[in-house]
Design a protein around this nucleic acid. Sequence first.
DNA 1: CTGAAAGCGCTTACAG
DNA 2: CTGAAAGCGCTTACAG
Lengths: 357, 357
Amino acid sequence: MPETAPRADRPADRLRDRTSGTRYGNRPTMKDVAARAGVGLKTVSRVVNGEPGVTPDTERRVQEAIEALGFRRNDSARVLRKGRTASIGLILEDLADPFYGPLSRAVEEVARAHGALLINGSSAEDPDREQELALALCARRVDGLVVIPAGDDHRYLEPEIRAGVATVFVDRPAGRIEADVVLSDNFGGARDGVAHLIAHGHRRIGFIGDMPRIHTAAERLRGYRAAMEDAGIAVADSWMSLGVTDPERVRRAAEAMLTGPEPVTAVFAGNNRVTVTVIRVLAGLSRQVALVGFDDIELADLLQPGVTVVAQDAAALGRTAAERLFRQLDGTHLTPERIELPTRLVTRGSGELPPSD
Amino acid sequence: MPETAPRADRPADRLRDRTSGTRYGNRPTMKDVAARAGVGLKTVSRVVNGEPGVTPDTERRVQEAIEALGFRRNDSARVLRKGRTASIGLILEDLADPFYGPLSRAVEEVARAHGALLINGSSAEDPDREQELALALCARRVDGLVVIPAGDDHRYLEPEIRAGVATVFVDRPAGRIEADVVLSDNFGGARDGVAHLIAHGHRRIGFIGDMPRIHTAAERLRGYRAAMEDAGIAVADSWMSLGVTDPERVRRAAEAMLTGPEPVTAVFAGNNRVTVTVIRVLAGLSRQVALVGFDDIELADLLQPGVTVVAQDAAALGRTAAERLFRQLDGTHLTPERIELPTRLVTRGSGELPPSD
DNA sequence: CTGAAAGCGCTTACAG
DNA sequence: CTGAAAGCGCTTACAG
C-alpha cells in the first residue's frame, strides 16, 4: 500500500508548502484519495469520471475520501494523457470594443455547448501580438482557434493547423493560407449604404474609414466606390480618408471634407468608432449633413436625427465561426470555405436627410 | 539511443493518427527533436527554454531539428511539472455587456504584463453557472480567479483558496467567505446622484434598479434612500422598483411611476441597461422628466438633453483587482481587504432639469 | 557542457 | 468488480 499522504492532515506541511510556492499549494491527488479510501488508483479514477463497474459501497468510500481531502481532479494532467484540452482560443482586436462583446459571447455559448472553455486575448491590432498570442494558445494546446486577424500573413499557423489545431478566421480573411473564413458582406453593405445616400439626392459623399490594410476597411471603400461609379459620380480624392480611427484623426478628416469650396453633403462612416466621432462633429455644425454608418451603435435611434446604419450581426459572426470550428473538430474533413453573412440597412433619419447646399 | 520517431516523416502515420483523432494530431515532442539532433532530452529542454550551458554548435543543431519538425513545446506538460499554469480566470456576468468590456480588457492587460493568459466566462447572472465555471477553472489549475459574482455564497471556493488559488472579487463582494474585494462606491455614488436631483428641486424621485439580491442594486437603493432621508423626503413605495433589467420590465416600471395621481418628476436609473430603457420611455413623453443614471453610456452627451450619470471606472476596477491578484500570487501574505473606488457625477443636462409639475 | 533517471497527476490497456 | 504497470511530454535533481 502506498504511504499515506501527510499533506492535508499536517498543518505544518501545508504552511511550509504554501510559502515555498510549490505545486498548486500541494493539493491532494488521486493517489492520496486512493490511499485514504483504501482502494486502487484506477478505482478512484472510475468514480471521479463516473465510469461503471464500481460497487456502491466502494464508490461511497471513495466519495468520502474525496470530500474529506477536498480533492479536485487536475485537468492539466488529464489533458496531457487524453490529447484534447476542451478549450478554444479567441483572438480579437480589443475586448473593450462593443462590436466584439456580442461576438465573444456567441463564441463562448457555442464553446460551452461543446463543453469547452474560452481563452481570450486582444491583439490590439498588432500583427506581432496576434502571432505571439496565437502561438501561446497553441502551446497550451487549445483544440481550436477563432481569430479576428490583425496581420495579413498567417503562414506562421501552418504547422499548427497541420498538427491538428482547428482554425477559423472571422470578420477578416486569413492571409496567405487556406482557412475557413466567416465575414460580413462588407462590400455589399457599404455599397447599399452609399447608394441609399445617392438615392436621397447626394452626389458629394465622403468616406471615412479604418487603415486600408484592414480588409474590412478596404472592402467598404470598394463598396463606396462601386456605388459612386454605378451612379456615374466621379469621386474626388479629398472625399476619402482612411487611417487610424482615433477621435482626433477622424475629427480632422471629417472637418476637412466638410469645409472648402465643394464640401460633402453626406458622410459614410466606415465603422462604429468613426460613426461616433462623426456624429460629434456634425452635432457642432449649423447645417445638416447626412450620415450613414457601418455597424450599429447603441442609442442610435434616440439621437436627433436617428442614425441610419448598415448593421452587421456580430453574434451571428461569432456563432457561425465557432460552429464551423467544432465541425472541424468532429473530424469530418472540410474544405476551407468562405462564409459571407448579409448586412442590413437600418434607416433612422440621418441617412434620409436631403443635401443642404 | 531512443528509437527514431517515425511520425513526422511517414505521411501514412500522420494520416492514420489524424483520422483517429489522437494526441494533438501527433505533434513532435522534445524526444523527437533530441533524436533528430542526436542529443539528449535535457539539452533540447535547455535550448527551448533558453537556459545556459549549451555550446553554440549544439544549440544550432537543436534549433534546426526544431524547425524541421515544426516542434512547439507542450505547455500542458510543462505546467504539470512546474505547478503554475500562468493563466488566470475571469468570471463575469455577460461578455456582451459594454460595462464589462473595459473591465475585461484591463484584467487582460495586467495578466499580459505578468505573462499570464486569460480564460473568460459568463455566468449569465446564474449562481450555479458561476460555480460550475469557477470550479472548471480551478480544475484547469488557473493560478488565480477574478470573479464578478452572481451568487451570494462562495463557500464552495474555500478548498480551492486553501489549496492556493488566488482569488479577488470585483464589482460585488464575496458571500460567506473572507476574500479580497474591489468595489465602486455604489452607496455614495447613488446618494450623490439623487442628492443632485433634490438640489434641482425634485422631491418625487423614482428609483429603478436591478434585482435586490444583487449587491450593487441593494447598495444603490440604500444610497437613494439615504439621500431622500437626508432631505427629509418620505419615500413612497410606488417610487421604487427593483427587478430584472430587461427592457420590458423596466419600461413598465417607469411608466407606472410616471403616471397616477402623484407621478415622479425625476428618475434615478440603477445601471446602464436601466438608463437606456428609461431614456426611451422619457423620449415618448410630452413633459420633461429629469434623469440621472448609474454607469456612463456611450453617446450620452449627444442626446437631447445630455444624460447626467454617476460614472464608475470599469477599467480601474479590473486593473485594481488583477493587480491585487498578482500580489497574492507573489506570495506575500495579505489579509483580505475591501477596496472601494470612487464614482464621479457627470452633469450633462438631464439631471439638471427642473420639476415640471 | 551534457544526459539518464525519476516524477508531475492523470488515463490507457491489460490482467485478474 | 478491481488494480498494477506503463506512458502522456515535459522539468527537476543529480551525476558525469
